[in-house]
Amino acid sequence: MSIIADHLTYIYNKGTVYEKKAVNDVSFSIKDGEYVALIGHTGSGKSTLIQLLNGLLKPQSGTVYVNGEDIFVKDYDLRALRGRIGIVFQYPEYQLFEEDVFTDVCFGPKNLGLDRQETELRAYEALKMVELPDEAFFQSPFDLSGGEKRRAAIAGVLAMKPDVLILDEPVAGLDPAGREWIFRLLSKLRKERQTTVILVSHSMDDIAEHAERIMVVDDGSIVMDGTPAEVFSYGKELMEMGLDIPRVSRLLYMLKENGVNVNTDIVTFKQAIEEVAGLFGKGR
């Protein structure tokens, strides 16, 4: 599923003192199956941008094309679109509401108008996918632990079987094991369902390890768009925007400054190990 953003502009509280241009004339396209990371400091406009992509917000000007169709024309079925472009919001566990986890996960597919059997099948698959133990299925979502709640909430979106999955800081507040688990899940989704992933994150290390492409949002505009190696070569500019570069890149750049000949295009941990071990003749 391809998404094209065409000159999107979104302004909050237009015409008041609180007026704020959150998204300013933004255009880009995302191809089927891509793994894109969206970075920018808090308030840079990335959350607004993702809400425009599935029609939760309507832009003041510009539009979004999904598979070539304008999603803001009058008769476009936005509800069906939301089933195909799923959003996992920040702290998604706060949206749980049903009496038990299973019914909560059924909420999404049921809203898509699927019959009961299909709904339950999808809910079951989604719960299996997030590796919640069977005994948790019929517990109240409010009795789960923090990490389990998040899994249940993510299952609620996965049960709609979206082609595109947008996640707004899915690892916020999670410990290292929880973070690792989220990224394993995303890899699995890409492999088994060919899901397109759009990830909003503050963790440069995680992005460097997983994303294929990075878009940098600053002050409502996309100021950089490229591979991790390309984007992270602008360390100074990123720091000025309140962002950072991955620790692996920092290491390689520092080695280079100290006269060690290393390839600074490397951003992942594994490749960096090979590169440095190679200096000692210990690479594989």
């Binding site: 939760l56 706060y94 909420f107």
Partner: peptide, 26 residues
């Protein structure tokens, strides 16, 4: 919350009063 539930396909705008009350629960 309204955004999150709309993203899960909840219809918050249309519907009769009886169903609208039910859509308020989520």
């Amino acid at each position: 919350i309204m955004k999150a539930q709309s993203a899960r396909g909840a219809d918050l705008e249309n519907g009769k009063l009886s169903t609208r009350i039910r859509t308020l629960i989520p």
